[in-house]
Design a protein around this nucleic acid. Structure first.
Lengths: 203, 203, 203, 203
DNA sequence: CATGAATGAGCTTTCATTCAT
DNA sequence: AATGAATGAAAGCTCATTCAT
């Protein structure tokens, strides 16, 4: 069994951070392990003291970064009790995060969903939990009677996440921001809360 | 200049179809040209009579298949005039298509957005037009006064497509279908039309 | 009535002529058979009706062109009886020919001597005869008593040819002609006739 | 930027030496990198730690070996002051070297002048210097009044080198030595010094 | 723990040659 | 005779991974 070394080691951290940059720039398959090593200021062989192989770098990267994203989101929503407000805040927090950490965003957008290795064989627990924050909000709202009972939380969570995700992909890939983060977040949460039909907007 | 041969050649078709299967199974980077050749029942070298290189196979594949998807969608919506109905039909048609052509769906989901080659450098005209079908519906609805005027069609088209896309990714990757296509399509278009709030039409 | 022009000799010649151009431009190994075919305005497959393979094109090219060179040289020397004058004329004729047919010159310079295929296994009869024109002149001169008896014609023919050959290589490769053909020919034949020492012609 | 490693590394040397053998045997284009690797007792990939590509092997080989040849020749002529004697010694030293290092000779004969890569695009500094040893001798002789003033050193250097080169090609390619090195060297330098005319040999 | 030179399997692509038309 | 689409072997080069130091 591999010694596994200390995850909190300086080198481990540096390699992950280097990998985020390198994968975001070139994509997973076009990135060379030696390039990550150089960016992390370690020897090629050192990578293999901390990670099993190249795939493992991506998996660890994803899990560790997603854990942060998850924690970040939970913290961002912690003070809010109203489910619709929560949803609105989720949208804002998600898009803000994707904007701030655009390299990570690009990897999540592009690399993670890329290979059957990572989305089929590899069960994506962190991502699952992230999506479930949304469905929990919806269930909560249904319990409180503010959301319609016929909504399937399992469908809604994906639809809502997908809407945000596609919007941030647009930002990640186009680099020109036609719409502000706050406006986009407001629009998207509005779609899901009030819909787009005219009479819905009457107050 | 490469002779380009006849695009309607039997071989061109066979190679594209083989590539759809092979790319869907292994992903672009894990697919070998020789594997596509074998699947297409042609020699390795024959591939290069019809395509410039491996990348070119993916680009052609995407353009040709997207053209079909686009045409298919336009045809599916041709009889419908009511914008909300159109949106509902778009959802259904999109999810149905993704289900029927799950290999193509997987490639669109996973490969196309994967590489800088295909989403950054390569301007994705067909995909753009596909998204614009949605924004056109919304603009039409706004003109008719059925959709709220404050909706940004450029945001809404992405949000709506993203919602559908994430849903179909779930199907593509999980293979277990918890929800029916029709139900999911209905739910998603409902979110966007009526929102999720309980008493939307009430003030 | 059929045109009845010699089809095969026409094509054969066109292919040889095309090959001269193509080999001179790219070198033998960097030349593609299809490029020769295109230059000769025939189909790829047609080449193989007239030549066994790519090597055979070079061999035939060399033999046919060398036959012409040989004939040309014999004709150029036909009117001259004085061996020293013959040598001088050989130099001039050789360099003139190389200048006029620089593509052929380049092939002789560069390709022919290039592969063991062509200079080891392949006995180069035409080239041999060409060299022997020189040794015959020398023997003739020795018989007439104008050339020193201690000269080995077998060494002298190579030395003389090599001197001319290196000079024409310089022209073939540099394209800037610092010295005129006639001056170079005069100098080189002078070296071999009178030597370079100061008072050679004094007795 | 490639690390370039230490040129004095054992491997660099071994690869060059292996390449000399392999290129001499098969010619550059018919030699496989893997064959060189095998001959050098290194892995295929190791070649690319020391050389950029196959072409680079030939270029480095030529530069390093020519540097040695150059040094060798300068050393051989160092003790001699009389220009005619120098020329005679040049001939002897050149032919001796070509005989001793016949594999290198074969490459210089055959490969170097073969490709536009090496004689057109690639300026051949070492070779130039080698030729200029000859022209320097001639200029020296002219300054001392022992060589005729009308001799163009730029023509003479090529003529003299060409004469020697053609002679050594004969040896390299034929493997049967009809004439001894010393006799050939003496003959060739005699041609250039005293010429071939009868009265020239009178002293 | 760290290194980085060495490895070699494996890939894309080319192109001389063939053969059905 | 002529064609040129198809073939498939072959080779240069890359790069994840290892292991002696």
């Amino acid at each position: 069994m591999k010694p596994e070394y200390k995850k909190n080691s300086d080198k481990h951290r540096r390699i992950i951070e280097a990998a985020v940059k390198v994968f975001a720039k070139n994509g997973f398959f076009n990135s060379k392990v030696s390039e990550i090593a150089r960016a992390a200021n370690v020897a090629d062989g050192t990578i293999y003291l901390y990670f099993q192989n190249k795939d493992d770098i991506l998996i660890c990267l994803f899990e560790e970064e997603m854990a942060k994203v998850l924690e970040n989101m939970r913290h961002a929503l912690s003070g809010i009790t109203d489910p619709p407000k929560k949803l609105e805040h989720f949208a804002l927090a998600h898009l803000s995060l994707m904007e701030q950490h655009h390299e990570l965003a690009e990897i999540i957008q592009v690399e993670i969903r890329q290979s059957s290795k990572f989305m089929k064989e590899y069960t994506n627990e962190q991502f699952h939990q992230y999506l479930n924050i949304i469905s929990e909000i919806i269930k909560e709202g249904q319990a409180q009677g503010v959301f319609r009972q016929d909504i399937l939380p399992g469908v809604a969570k994906r639809a809502f996440f997908g809407a945000l995700d596609e919007m941030s992909r647009y930002w990640v890939l186009s680099s020109v921001k036609k719409y502000s983060i706050t406006m986009a977040a407001k629009q998207i949460s509005d779609f899901f809360l009030k819909g787009m039909l005219q009479h819905n907007s009457e107050s």
